[in-house]
Design a protein around this nucleic acid. Structure first.
Lengths: 200, 200
DNA sequence: GAAAAATACGAGCATTTACTCGTGTTTGTC
DNA sequence: GACAAACACGAGTAAATGCTCGTATTTTTC
């Protein structure tokens, strides 16, 4: 197996330029129809240069997915901690939702990646990892808030909540800016409606 | 523009064989990676024959989408009518959900089509038409059940409910058969949780 | 039963596209 | 400054794939 070359500063920059460009192109045309040549051109670089840093198109997408996961985690850790666990449910939900929405708004390419149904197999791994990361986080919060809840119920509730979230996230980020808050409110209502029966 | 030939019985059968084959192949590999030659082969037919009946790959998918819409509508009209509108909410929701789930279970290819994120533009039309058909139906039921509800609120509620439904539908049909009822129950809870505050 | 229209074949064309490779330039190391 | 390693180029390649077209067969029409 060929060993990774030791990247120099220039190389690191190029890799960032390339993932940036990929995000843009993915956002514009979707993963499947995004061509590597177009991505290279967008990054102001030749096709050959792209393949100096990424073995193939999937590797590029994986790098993007990883970056996304990191940003999401960072945003969440920054904006949310377990001390909020006893807030009224609507507020708690709001605090969990907002950072996610922000990250998605700031990174249009990712949505294109993760809502795309037929991705190559390699990509389902990072996607599912991300999904599961979110679900795990939700389960954590649920456990802290409702200690008496059986783990099985807790985990399915977390999974369902995450799925509701993912579904409406699309609408929220796609919607024109003025409507966005309205949709966030609806998302909130949906989650609160589903979760509140678990309390008590 | 070239006029449609008058199909004879044999041709009608071929078209069905082809859409059937397309559904299978779409289900197996997704729309993007499904090749027309593979579909033709699956239907036991040459590529040329496929193009005798469908102008291109998209036309084939459109035909599938149309069939789906019809089946869904039929299933719904058969299993549901407005007299049920005053049932307790959980039961009402259950009656709306079941037929949809059935149709989706019976037609694996469609899910592949409609959950795929980056479809060609032509296909977004039938997809959205279908989505809107469902949303409209929900809005209808809401209007009948809660006459006092302002139309704006009603429509957004219908849209959100449909989206929740679509999101969890994927989980329901993907899940192994034994778990399926559990997920349907959760879907029901989610919808009831979201909709019940609208009553009163 | 003959002309016309519809159906059927399948080799192959035209295009797209992920990726390569020979060559030249820049950066780091001693 | 010399040598190697990393970076960069971009024309070109090989494979995939949507689709065509010349030809042959079956069905309908009269």
């Amino acid at each position: 197996m060929p060993e990774e070359p030791r990247r120099q500063a220039r190389g690191q920059r190029r890799m960032e330029q390339l993932t940036d460009a990929a995000a843009v192109v993915f956002a514009e045309v979707g993963y499947a129809k995004a061509t590597t040549n177009a991505i290279a051109k967008r990054a102001g670089v030749s096709p050959g240069t792209l393949y100096q840093f990424f073995a193939n198109k999937e590797a590029l997408a994986e790098a993007l997915a990883e970056r996304y996961r990191d940003e999401l985690k960072a945003a969440h850790e920054k904006a949310f901690d377990l001390s909020m666990v006893d807030l009224p449910l609507p507020e708690l939900v709001d605090r969990m939702i907002r950072p996610m929405v922000e990250v998605n708004l700031a990174n249009p390419g990712f949505k294109a990646l993760f809502t795309s149904g037929d991705l190559p197999d390699r990509l389902t791994a990072p996607t599912q990892a991300l999904h599961q990361a979110v679900t795990g986080r939700v389960a954590e919060v649920l456990a802290a808030r409702i200690p008496g809840l059986p783990p099985t119920q807790r985990d399915t509730a977390a999974a369902v909540a995450t799925q509701i979230f993912a579904a409406l996230l699309g609408t929220v980020v796609t919607a024109p800016a003025p409507d966005r808050d309205r949709w966030i409110t609806e998302l909130n209502k949906a989650l609160v409606g589903y979760l509140s029966p678990l309390e008590s």
